[in-house]
């Protein structure tokens, strides 16, 4: 349990980082750990894309965009984040909840 590593950062009531610039890889690991997700390079590929896309476009990518842009199949994404990839990727990547419905 690594909760202590991110008690100093502000999160909204749903568990999204309020200030994405406070994100570090360790923080991502700690949040994933709390969500019971063991991060692998396949997870990181999606998390990193979400971060890069947020940095360049100013908004969190929806799941469809993540799948299209990374080339990772929707089915595979659900295997990596079975408890809801739409929310979990954004939470671990420290970006806001995606506004896209797809």
């Amino acid at each position: 349990m690594t909760t202590a590593t991110y008690t100093h950062v502000a999160m909204d009531k749903d568990g999204y980082l309020l200030n994405p610039t406070e994100w570090t890889m360790d923080l991502g690991e700690a949040i994933a750990d709390d969500l019971n997700i063991q991060l692998t390079p396949d997870h990181w590929r999606l998390i990193n894309f979400a971060r890069e896309d947020f940095a360049s476009k100013g908004q969190s990518p929806g799941l469809r965009r993540i799948a299209q842009q990374t080339g990772v199949a929707i089915k595979q994404i659900y295997l990596l984040f079975p408890k809801g990839p739409g929310k979990l990727i954004a939470k671990i990547a420290g970006v806001p909840k995606p506004k896209s419905c797809l």
Binding site: L63, P82, K83, G84, P85, G86, K87, L88, C101, L102
Partner: peptide, 9 residues
């Protein structure tokens, strides 16, 4: 239904 799945519902 898709939104539900994206949220883990």
């Amino acid at each position: 239904a898709n939104a539900a799945r994206m949220c883990g519902v």
